[in-house]
Design a protein around this nucleic acid. Structure first.
Lengths: 243, 243
DNA sequence: ACTCGGTTTAAACAAGTGTTTAATGCGCTT
DNA sequence: AAGCGCATTAAACACTTGTTTAAACCGAGT
């Protein structure tokens, strides 16, 4: 465990040119994204980056540290590529939400080209490491709060904290589905239909309308959490599963 | 590549007792679920199952085949544990949908105890292998169709095919969120609130109400796909991201 | 020309990987 | 008891893994 693994750091984030360190970072991204941390091998990364196998340890210390830096870099790239919209002061919350859903889909889904940055971030969401705690604090949470403030503006009375969260998760969940289950979805929907009807603007329009309608309805008639005390109408659970 | 890897098969699915093959299958589940195919090692599985390292190759041929059988077994267990409801003939589609969402959450989310079966299936959804094509055909697709037929009963006019799908994905997406992003969610929501307000019945109630309201609203006023031709209200995309 | 720092390299390393082998054990029937 | 077939075992195999080492390289600075 030697500690001589910091060279060439001109300070902060350089992101300069085709330096060796840079090439490793760029090559590591797709490999980690496609295979995960363990299955990705340093030799594969080094070959893709056209550098010696020892370079990773020289510049990053070990494989784990390279992974960490790769995830951070992926987030930065994604944010830079799809930045926040800036709204006119008189924009309605409904229109803001539409833009926000579009933003979320563009950042996280981006069906075409399947950018490795997104795949890598999704891995962190599904299987959190120490890196993803950082991700939540610095990235997901503030993002989520912006969306919730838009929702707040849409309803008359103030929502309970957990209701706010649930609504937020409903919106985010609909968007995330198309990333998480993209491959499975394309096994269900025919290819042609997928191209035509499931592009990002169309999906954003659907998810926005769906969610706005739901929020308005909830706002109108209910702040009671479990009022009707409905008993399940299911007679009895038979073993009639798709076995 | 020897082919002597089928012994002790009394025919079809035995699932009998604590035979060696059985023990391997049960031990392999959690290991594959937690680490993925590559990162899981046969030695770790064999130690957990208290069998010799050669046993996996003896009974299953190779590691890949064991993985395949493990995924199939996980699906069967999950279906058996949370079977379909059987509805009364006069049950309203709204109540059916509520039960269906509850079923989906129970099968796929099951917050407490984090069953390895679910984690394993989610891995297949996110990173499809040859095994997951089987999974979609035999399991997801029929399940999805049942849900869509309930939605059909809720609306007046018949929906377009892609609209049907999008609504279905909206409902499924909301449910899946709590599995995919469970760990991240618990980083956002305080522990106490999580236990109290985000249990399965409460989530099912929220998702059902949210979705039913949205479906009703969509049914009422719209079959036009992109009518308003709304231009984005975003002035211009600044670089004001959480950088 | 020489040295010196950072960089790159091929080779080696030790540990871990899935898989195979050959021997042994064990419960049968004959 | 002998023979047979399935089950289990420890050991070895061939290969890959992340990491380390020591030598070579290379562009300044003196």
């Amino acid at each position: 465990m030697n500690l001589n693994h910091r060279r060439n750091e001109s300070g902060g984030m350089s992101m300069s040119n085709d330096s060796t360190k840079e090439r490793i970072l760029l090559a590591a991204g797709p490999v980690f994204a496609n295979k995960g941390f363990k299955a990705a091998t340093v030799r594969e990364i080094c070959e893709a980056a056209q550098v010696n196998v020892a370079s990773i340890n020289y510049y990053f210390g070990d494989k784990q540290a390279l992974y960490h830096e790769t995830v951070i870099a992926a987030r930065q790239m994604r944010v830079k590529e799809v930045p926040y919209p800036v709204w006119a002061p008189d924009a309605s919350p409904e229109d803001k939400l539409r833009d926000f859903v579009l933003l979320l889909l563009n950042r996280l889904v981006a069906m075409k080209s399947e950018p490795w940055q997104v795949r890598l971030l999704m891995r962190e969401v599904l299987n959190p490491t120490e890196t993803s705690r950082h991700l939540v604090q610095e990235y997901f949470r503030p993002f989520f709060e912006v969306m919730l403030s838009i929702v707040d503006d849409m309803v008359e009375e103030s929502l309970s904290e957990s209701k706010r969260w649930k609504i937020g998760f409903s919106i985010v969940g609909q968007c995330l589905y198309y990333r998480f289950a993209a491959d499975v979805t394309s096994m269900i929907v025919p290819d042609q239909k997928f191209e035509d009807e499931f592009n990002i603007p169309a999906l954003a329009e659907h998810i926005s309308s769906f969610s706005i309608a739901a929020i308005k309805a909830i706002d109108g008639c209910d702040r009671n959490e479990s009022p009707k005390s409905r008993k399940s109408t299911a007679l009895e659970s038979g073993t009639t599963g798709t076995e």
